[in-house]
Deep mutational scan, measured.
Amino acid sequence: MEVRTIKVFTTVDNINLHTQVVDMSMTYGQQFGPTYLDGADVTKIKPHNSHEGKTFYVLPNDDTLRVEAFEYYHTTDPSFLGRYMSALNHTKKWKYPQVNGLTSIKWADNNCYLATALLTLQQIELKFNPPALQDAYYRARAGEAANFCALILAYCNKTVGELGDVRETMSYLFQHANLDSCKRVLNVVCKTCGQQQTTLKGVEAVMYMGTLSYEQFKKGVQIPCTCGKQATKYLVQQESPFVMMSAPPAQYELKHGTFTCASEYTGNYQCGHYKHITSKETLYCIDGALLTKSSEYKGPITDVFYKENSYTTTIK
């Protein structure tokens, strides 16, 4: 009895394709271990004539594949690729409408935090270190965002349907971005203890939790000093293409032309909904596939993004 075979390709990165001759009487799992086709788990399936010449994702289970996976995804987590594939199996079914010149995501599976993050990423200057993220990001900007969303979920250790947080998501993504040249110098002034300067680099240099107003941050924000008295913390120097200011959701007025974009969060910790506000020729609110415009805006804002380049204080 002759062994019926077909020729397929296996890959971990969709760049390096490895030619395989597979036995049609055995499952993919018996031949390769966990195997995925377009995100779908085909591990328990036997090869079919229609699979001839198709590319299958496999887990990096030998040295060659491990090197290829690390170079593309910059992670050695053995569960990463499987999590990416199972997320992709959902995100490829989502709709990605162009809204006001940006790629958004039609609401499904509690994905409003991903839509808000995706919209924000198209408006701030950011370059990702893992080629996987950078490639998928370019495709997302062009309207094909399924891979990018699935990668975000995998890097953030999230599953489809789980509630997510924009600030946490951005923080994970910033860790995989090139923020080497970003720098922030802060000064804390206390009447009792004097003053202390701190220099922050990388992710810490672009994120701040405690106030939404970048102007206020430049002037000074009140913080408790270690001595128990009130101290003032203010920005001395900022070198970065953008800054992200966050605070627990509270009524906040966004003035046209003073910011790049913002995240609105309605609801409580267990259950809520994100919308995205962007400042173009007027203010726009993007909620999944829905767009509304207004000249002014007041609502429960939790993150505001500002364009920056270089700032030095005039406070002496």
Rank of each mutant, 00 (worst) to 15 (best):
T199N: 07
A146S: 12
P34L: 09
S213P: 00
K46N: 08
A247T: 06
F80R: 03
E264I: 09
N89P: 10
K201R: 13
W107I: 05
L114E: 03
S246I: 00
M209Y: 14
T19F: 10
K298H: 15
F56W: 04
G288F: 00
T159A: 15
T5M: 11
P47R: 05
S294F: 14
N16G: 09
G210L: 01
D109S: 10
L118N: 01
Q122F: 04
H18P: 06
A145Y: 03
T278S: 10
G161A: 05
C156L: 07
G143S: 05
Y73T: 03
W107F: 06
F128G: 03
T266P: 00
K95P: 05
G161I: 03
I223Y: 14
Q122D: 04
N187M: 11
A177T: 08
C182A: 09
D287F: 00
Y84C: 04
G161K: 05
K183T: 10
D287C: 00
N100C: 10
G299D: 02
T282M: 15
G202I: 00
K7Q: 12
Q20K: 11
L102S: 04
T11L: 06
D13E: 06
V42L: 13
K293N: 12
L59A: 11
V21L: 13
Y36L: 06
V42F: 15
Y306T: 00
D41V: 14
P300C: 14
F32R: 07
I315K: 12
C182S: 06
Q195N: 15
G288K: 00
A205T: 04
W94M: 04
R167D: 01
E296D: 15
E264Y: 04
D63G: 09
T292F: 07
T91K: 04
E215W: 05
Y73W: 05
N157T: 06
Q123L: 04
T75F: 05
V99A: 07
H90A: 15
C285K: 06
Y84I: 03
Y113E: 02
K218E: 04
K54L: 15
C190I: 03
V67L: 14
V99C: 10
N268K: 08
L133I: 06
A136Y: 11
N111C: 02
S86M: 08
A115S: 08
Y36H: 13
Y28C: 04
Y306L: 01
Q134C: 15
L179H: 02
P78M: 08
Q238T: 01
Y113A: 03
P224T: 13
S279L: 00
Q216R: 10
T226V: 14
A247S: 09
T91L: 05
Q238S: 01
V185R: 07
G288T: 00
K280V: 07
K183M: 14
S86F: 08
A150M: 01
I15C: 11
Q238M: 00
T282G: 08
V221A: 05
T313F: 11
P249M: 02
P78C: 10
F174V: 04
A136H: 12
S181T: 11
G164W: 03
G267F: 05
L235D: 01
Q196I: 10
K316A: 15
A289C: 07
C190W: 01
F259C: 00
L212S: 01
C261R: 00
R4E: 15
K158L: 04
D135C: 11
I152H: 03
K191R: 15
H176M: 14
D62N: 12
T292A: 06
D180P: 02
T278V: 09
F259N: 04
V206E: 00
Y172F: 10
K293V: 14
A146H: 08
Y172N: 11
N49L: 14
S50N: 13
S79C: 07
E204L: 07
T226W: 07
Y113T: 01
Q31N: 14
I124M: 06
R167V: 01
W107K: 03
A146T: 06
Y57H: 10
L121E: 03
L81E: 06
G29K: 09
A69E: 12
T120S: 13
Q134F: 07
Q196T: 14
K316G: 09
G220E: 05
T103L: 06
T199G: 04
A115D: 04
T5F: 14
R141P: 05
N49Y: 11
R139W: 12
Q251G: 06
D180R: 09
E144H: 10
Q237Y: 11
K54P: 04
S104I: 03
R83T: 06
I45Q: 10
A40Q: 14
L212M: 05
R66Q: 14
V3D: 15
N157A: 07
Y252N: 03
A142V: 12
N16K: 08
M26R: 11
V243H: 02
L153V: 09
Y28H: 05
T302P: 00
G29M: 12
Q237R: 11
Y36V: 05
G101F: 03
K218G: 01
M24H: 09
A289N: 13
H276V: 02
T278R: 06
T76M: 15
Y73F: 15
V221M: 12
G210W: 01
P34E: 11
L118R: 03
I301P: 00
A289M: 13
K106A: 06
T278F: 10
S79Y: 11
N309C: 08
